[in-house]
Design a binder for these strands. Sequence first.
RNA 1: GCUCCCUUCGUCUAGAGGCCUAGGACAUAGCCCUCUCAAGGCUGUAACACGGGUUCGAAUCCCGUAGGGAGCGCCA
Length: 473
Amino acid sequence: MAGIMSDSMTVVTRFAPSPTGMLHIGGVRTALFSWLYARHARGRFILRIEDTDRERHTEEAVGVILDGMQWLGLAADEGPYYQTQRSPRYREVLEQMLASGTAYRCYCTKEELERLRAEQLARKEKPRYDGRCRGRTEPRPGIEPVIRFRNPPDGEVIVDDLVHGRVVFQNAELDDLIIARSDGTPTYNFCVVVDDMDMRITHVIRGDDHLNNTPRQINMLRALGGEPPAYGHVSMILGPDGAKLSKRHGAVSALQYRDEGYLPEALLNYLARLGWSHGDQEIFTVEEMVAAFDIANVNKAAAAFNPEKLLWVNQQHMMRVPLSRLAPILREQLARLGLESRDEQLLEGVAAVQRERSKTLKEMAELSRYFFAEDIALDEKSARKHLTGESVPALAKVRERLSALGEWTAEPIHATLSAIAAELGVGLGKVAQPLRVALTGGTVSPPIDATAALIGRNRAIARLDRAIAWAGK
RNA sequence: GCUCCCUUCGUCUAGAGGCCUAGGACAUAGCCCUCUCAAGGCUGUAACACGGGUUCGAAUCCCGUAGGGAGCGCCA
């Protein structure tokens, strides 16, 4: 009964990225599913860095993964483990397999193997090693051998995949894969098996590009006397055009989304809903996802990444989260625009009125310059339209009454503006729009009373004076 | 080429033989609300890849076909 664990057994999942210099959002999604599965089952989640290919992997590349996981809040209960630090253990298992005969040395040269491959291809066969060194007992002088796994020649391997259901592979389709290179270093498929066994992984949740590796890994695990874990192969993410997601589709790195002003829980929510659903619910807090997640409901088909929906999900989260969560991120985004603000009260106030009019915190910062900048730029077009000679009486009246206003908050400001409109016999728009241009420099802002309140009396009056002067020209 | 996987509105999905006149969400169009922009509300356009079966009845089960993807490395 491969992979069926009793309830009493603790679930252990893992995320095993290869440090390529970026945390890909496809990887984030499998990490998330792994993490959710462990959290839901009150199990453990392990982070393991697959860095066997030493040259390509740098410390910075590992740092990127760690930073990304931290930003996302996908905390590991164990690790990070590094494969490069486990060499002695791999060596040990290799020796053990050689001794037991489940692995053997292969002295074929690369040229020989290439020829074999070419012949098979010419015969329209699947290229695979034919096992010619299986029975060899004597070394070939001058050749450093590789080590191959002795795969069972017949029978089948059944994978009861958590998302795909039963998948059956014939052993005859599998060949004896190389588990150690001629320089003695172990290869990926072998390391994974040893690691998953040693770390007692109960549920391997990974990309479905690994589905074809699974029968080999199961065979190796059995040869080592281990019991295979359960496997769940989740689909990959496609670009909006249905092609494999790549840089040309825009941001594929998780940290880019942080820089673009997305909330990590929103990214997680969006990624989870890509291939998974829970009734008609679209917006989930992380806790809700943990409670509702079930790998069995994950879709088999690959899903296309839709940036517009991510934007919507992000805004929905911005509108629900406490303002104190938004303020620091808004401050950071403002800083990138060269605008300083240490006023937590103001930051939260701005976030409160802007969150329903911005999709990201970056956009919020861009739309909120006039709340933080001392000098604002007057948009020509807006000014010509609304700061006309006709608007001067209204503006003057607003200036006069607002400077005398007792309490500088939205309600009295609103009452004042309404009263002025009524006195002048015009709609509120005739007062609000010129004032909006005066205060913000443009025609778009949150409700004018709230906007004025946040801008503050002194700055508001100064901007009014300037606008009146402009209109009177 | 071989093996394996996948296929419901443009996109993400619901759907476990009758509840389907195929539901929800994003996007899109219209209306409402309204001081601008939003947010919100209402309404609309829009899908079971195709062909055969099985069944009283199929989006759902079976078999093909087509299309897409992955794997077949001394990469991970």
